[in-house]
Design a protein around this nucleic acid. Sequence first.
DNA 1: ATATAAATTTTGAATGATTCTAATTTTGTG
DNA 2: CACAAAATTAGAATCATTCAAAATTTATAT
Lengths: 137, 137
Amino acid sequence: MKDYTKILRDKDISPSIQRVKILEFLDINRSHPTVDEIFTSLLPVIPTLSKMTIYNTLKLFSAKGLIRSIPNSENIGHYDFNVEPHSHFKCRTCKRVFDIDVDLGVNIASNIDGYKIDEYNLILEGTCKECNKKIKN
Amino acid sequence: MKDYTKILRDKDISPSIQRVKILEFLDINRSHPTVDEIFTSLLPVIPTLSKMTIYNTLKLFSAKGLIRSIPNSENIGHYDFNVEPHSHFKCRTCKRVFDIDVDLGVNIASNIDGYKIDEYNLILEGTCKECNKKIKN
DNA sequence: ATATAAATTTTGAATGATTCTAATTTTGTG
DNA sequence: CACAAAATTAGAATCATTCAAAATTTATAT
């Protein structure tokens, strides 16, 4: 079992119950959950939890490089514990976000001068394996 | 002057005044406008215009491959007349979206089996040249 | 320990983008 | 020219997100 309290302290974040539970949830659930999914799942654990805390916490975690957010054309935020370089595929049918092992190489930052890049995301969209099968049947 | 009516007909879209003007606007304004910017700009031209028409039209154009939408972590839709492969940079300060000439190199589609890819987007986020200067001063 | 200040969480209202629904207008066809 | 189909419009509804202010919790100094 990971010591999320320590992970937070190492990033200069005071480890409140809410923050620890949100971080733990994101680590265990690598399905790129939305704010709403996090809220619904943690409400039984922390009955006083508010969505505002989740928004604040996710913003804080992102700023500290602890997690990353995944933009997509449906304009709903997904969050990822995995900050290692990898890409994402969003299924337009089931709405799930999958990890895709596409390596962009390091050469992106070097190409663009003048721009300060905080983050980059490669997002593929279309139909996932499962939904493809269902459509064909 | 381009024949937008013909461009629409070629894609089996009946060329209403609204659709022609929206397409023309996107062609002339390559600044990746939002729905609101399109609406505000075209309202003087088509006084009865409604935002719903713009949403419908952009969705239709996207589905027909006439334009593409640019996802970003601020969850606000930007639209691009240019459907040729290229990437985007969104400035978190001034909110503008810039074209970036990043070559993704290896063709992505071939790497991922089982997934049907309709579209892919590489979106970089951070601070643009101009905003960088302002911050430093 | 205890008072006080600072940080965090909570609540509910507000905002902003997008979607829904139903009515109206426009267009295409016989 | 009438009728059906398609497109547009208006306004309400929804959903994610943010704001502002109050309440709670935590940390600090006495």
